[in-house]
Computed example of a mutant assay.
Amino acid sequence: MIVRILGEGQWRIEDAVVADLNRLDDEVEQAVGTGDQAELDRALHALLEEVRTQGTTVPDDELSDSDLILPAAGSTLEDVRALLDASDEGLIPG
């Protein structure tokens, strides 16, 4: 699976990592639901860090479609809400 973090690049993620990403995605969704920007910052940081540490960077010269697109670090509640509204399953399906 290829995951893009907006403004940063792409990472190749093994399927076994997706369950951890889903747990962190739930925390992001909860923060957006309660309108808590500080909690969103914490949850989004944890989600993006998991992608960065568990994934393998896709080289810039390798053209690959992204399976998932995650918001950039520092995104606002409105930014993340717009991405969530475009999906029925949160940022990470499954």
Results as ranks from 00 to 15, higher is better:
M1T: 08
I2Y: 04
I2T: 13
I2G: 05
V3Y: 03
R4K: 15
I5R: 02
I5K: 00
L6P: 00
G7S: 04
G7Y: 04
G7I: 02
E8P: 04
E8A: 05
G9T: 05
G9V: 04
G9C: 08
Q10C: 11
W11S: 05
W11P: 01
R12N: 11
R12T: 08
I13F: 05
E14L: 15
E14F: 06
E14P: 00
D15C: 06
D15R: 08
D15I: 07
D15N: 12
A16Y: 10
A16L: 11
A16S: 15
V17C: 05
V18N: 02
V18H: 03
A19P: 09
A19I: 09
A19E: 13
A19L: 13
D20C: 10
L21C: 15
L21M: 14
L21F: 03
N22R: 15
N22D: 10
R23W: 10
L24Q: 08
L24H: 06
D25A: 12
D25S: 10
E27I: 01
E27V: 02
E27A: 15
V28S: 08
E29Q: 15
Q30W: 06
Q30G: 10
Q30E: 11
V32W: 05
G33W: 04
G35M: 09
D36N: 15
Q37C: 07
A38L: 12
E39L: 15
E39C: 06
E39R: 14
E39D: 14
L40F: 04
D41Q: 11
D41P: 01
R42P: 00
A43Q: 07
A43M: 07
L44E: 01
L44I: 00
L44P: 00
A46G: 08
L47Q: 01
L47M: 07
L48M: 09
E49W: 13
E49M: 14
E49G: 12
E49A: 13
E49Q: 14
E49N: 15
V51I: 12
V51H: 01
V51R: 00
V51M: 07
V51S: 01
R52Y: 12
T53S: 15
T53H: 12
T53K: 10
Q54C: 12
G55I: 00
G55P: 02
T56E: 09
T56L: 08
P59N: 05
D60G: 01
D60M: 10
D60N: 09
D61H: 13
D61C: 00
E62I: 09
E62W: 04
L63C: 06
L63K: 12
S64D: 07
S64L: 14
D65M: 11
S66K: 11
S66D: 14
D67V: 05
D67A: 14
D67G: 12
D67P: 07
I69N: 06
I69E: 12
L70R: 01
L70P: 00
P71T: 05
A72W: 02
A72L: 02
A72R: 07
A72C: 05
A72K: 03
G74D: 01
G74M: 03
S75V: 03
S75M: 02
T76K: 09
L77M: 10
L77H: 06
L77S: 07
E78S: 14
E78L: 12
R81E: 13
R81V: 03
A82V: 08
A82K: 09
D85V: 02
D85C: 00
D85E: 14
D85I: 01
A86Y: 05
S87Y: 03
D88L: 10
D88N: 08
E89Y: 09
E89C: 09
L91V: 11
I92S: 04
P93L: 11
G94S: 08
G94T: 05
